[in-house]
Design a protein around this nucleic acid. Structure first.
Lengths: 184, 184
DNA sequence: TACAGTTGTTCATTATATTGAGCGATCAAG
DNA sequence: CTTGATCGCTCAATATAATGAACAACTGTA
């Protein structure tokens, strides 16, 4: 049925259709679909498949990318509840990112938790990286240097040199890190 | 069923999922859908509704706009058959545009046909506009100036001043016009 | 070997989207 | 007032997507 989702696909389609001076039936003919479904979609009484939407947009024509690019640009969020940090990849390591869409942003900040024994393996990406340990202990390897850091201690290095994080202890380790530009 | 459409939504989703180190089941849990449908979608054996796709992308998270923005940029078309000119709005006036997606382009060229009696009404948009009459006669009003143009004659004006086109004769009028930037 | 956990896949059932036809309302022409 | 042609909307029938449970293949552990 209609989407309980946020945005209003129906009226966007309707606006678009009317901007092109097309009736539901005209658009239906162009797109090769029935007119009924356009009525349903515009009322959000039906959630079209991506294929259906593509057919409809071809009638204008407009690409899917363009269509969704017209979306209300989400006003940049400034404050984030702990719950709103977004988990990047579960498992024994938890990365909770501040902000969802970092495209065009300069910073990527992560709230990290390493289970005992957790190991990132060797990493390298094109950025700079900095972090502070909050709780537990974390072995940080950068190039040929290795050090185990504890609460209050920190690191800063060029992410292009291969690096690795491991929690060797038997208690969870908690840290906060930042990349610039976002690269993880 | 799957889309006979051009692009491969399935493998794009799969790539995205694997880039995030998520299994089909993990993603399913995050998105609140069944794991089976992810398998189907990734094989293009099912064409997800926009709502379904949105749920899935929320699991990464990624917006619909971002997802489709990753699309292979369609290599710019250089040559267009007469049939490929895209009709912008039917009726007594036909505007056939050269090229589908003019986003980021500087020019919008239209092949226009005005049925006898056709009238655009008053227009104004933020661009410059130029055209040549090929066949028939066209009354062109720009600001307080009015002139009827015939084959071989032309116009050039700032589209911000209100303007209007009318075919007063009893034969069809054919013209070619260009806007910069695309604004119609 | 055996076991428990995971992976992605398939199947029948259920929910939903889509079709094709028909409805009343509106408008212009005769 | 008719007639014909639109408009968008609704309804029953059909096609398709989505679910939940099961499957074989593969993993690491005992």
């Amino acid at each position: 049925m209609a989407e309980g989702n946020g945005f209003d696909l129906g009226s966007r389609l309707k606006t678009l259709r009317e901007a092109h001076n097309l009736s539901q039936r005209e658009l239906a003919k162009r797109a090769g679909v029935s007119n009924a479904i356009i009525s349903m979609i515009e009322q959000n009484r039906s959630s079209p498949s991506v294929g259906m939407l593509k057919k409809l947009l071809d009638g204008f024509p407009l690409s899917l990318a363009e269509f969704f690019a017209l979306e209300v640009p989400p006003k940049p969020q400034i404050y984030f509840a702990a719950r709103e940090l977004v988990e990047l990849a579960g498992g024994s390591i938890s990365y909770r990112q501040v902000g969802r869409d970092l495209a065009g942003r300069a910073l990527q900040m992560l709230h990290e938790r390493y289970a005992p024994g957790a190991d990132t393996g060797e990493l390298s990406h094109n950025a700079e990286e900095c972090g502070i340990i909050l709780r537990g202990r974390l072995e940080v390897t950068v190039g040929d240097q290795v050090k185990v850091l504890g609460p209050g201690e920190a690191y800063y290095f060029d992410s292009r040199t291969t690096h690795r994080f491991r929690n060797l202890g038997d208690e969870e380790c908690e840290a906060v890190s930042a990349n610039s530009p976002p690269s993880f």
